[in-house]
């Protein structure tokens, strides 16, 4: 990925700070406009590089809000977010976000390969088209998620589980160092869930970091790193992971 590049926000390709964790939240609070009470308040979290952090909580507990804030989609009301030691937005290409309910227009004329290839967007920046390296990464991600037979299918024809896999393939194609996965197993069949569990394991083995939100305690990875339990936007202090 060498050569000329104009990132989308100029400062979007900063190098990680030496020794900084993948993610550090200090006293993070988030408010939605027009809503009384914070959506998140006083959240601290450190996710070391190469670890899987798990956010546990019921629907509405603030898991998605936390991930959206880290992805740069909402500005915090207070506190700080550091991604590899940098402020949010300073390294867009290092962060991949898989939302629980994506804003994807599934009727848009794009095939699975095109969708996965769009994971390279932050790396390409303005005016650059995907090259052989980007295409090879997209093919590998499609293969890894078991979508090779569907690569040329329009996304409109995918089932719910296949769509989720395609979005996961896009996150993989991005080669992000920090993956934010919001309920990634929703709508997946058991086979796809196993595939995803294996994928998360491989990513961590390769030194990547993952923050995964789940309301299902049974779906927590076998060796989780930090676990943050949220209730009504606040961290629950008692030991959340007693086995």
């Amino acid at each position: 990925m060498s050569g000329w590049r104009v990132g989308y926000r100029g400062r979007g390709h900063r190098a990680p700070r030496p020794g900084a964790p993948a993610l550090r939240l200090d006293g993070l609070s988030v408010r939605y406009p027009g809503v009384t009470g914070p959506a998140l308040q006083g959240v601290d979290l450190v996710v070391p590089r190469g670890a899987v952090a798990v956010l546990v909580g019921h629907n509405g507990s603030g898991k998605s809000t936390l991930l959206r804030a880290v992805a740069g989609l909402i500005r915090p009301a207070a506190g700080s977010i550091r991604v590899f030691g940098n402020p949010v937005g300073a390294c867009h290409h290092r962060v991949a976000y898989l939302p629980q309910r994506s804003e994807v227009d599934w009727r848009f004329p794009v095939d699975v390969r095109g969708l996965v290839l769009s994971g390279r967007l932050a790396h390409l920046g303005w005016l650059r088209r995907p090259g052989p390296v980007d295409h090879a990464l997209a093919e590998a991600a499609i293969e890894r998620l078991g979508l090779a037979a569907l690569a040329r299918e329009p996304v409109a024809r995918l089932s719910g589980g296949q769509r989720q896999r395609a979005l996961l393939a896009r996150a993989l194609c991005q080669e992000a160092d920090l993956l934010l996965l919001d309920e990634p197993l929703t709508a997946m069949d058991p086979e796809a869930r196993d595939l995803t569990d294996g994928l998360v394991g491989d990513l961590v083995a390769a030194g990547r970091s993952v923050v995964m939100a789940t309301h299902d305690l049974d779906r927590v990875p076998p060796e989780p790193g930090p676990v943050l339990r949220l209730a009504a936007g606040r961290p629950v202090r008692e030991p959340a992971w007693a086995g």
Partner: peptide, 19 residues
Amino acid sequence: KELAVSAFDPGHARVAGLR
């Protein structure tokens, strides 16, 4: 690519830093 991605997945485009 900016026109296409911001149309079919504006959320992803925003995360990538695109306005």
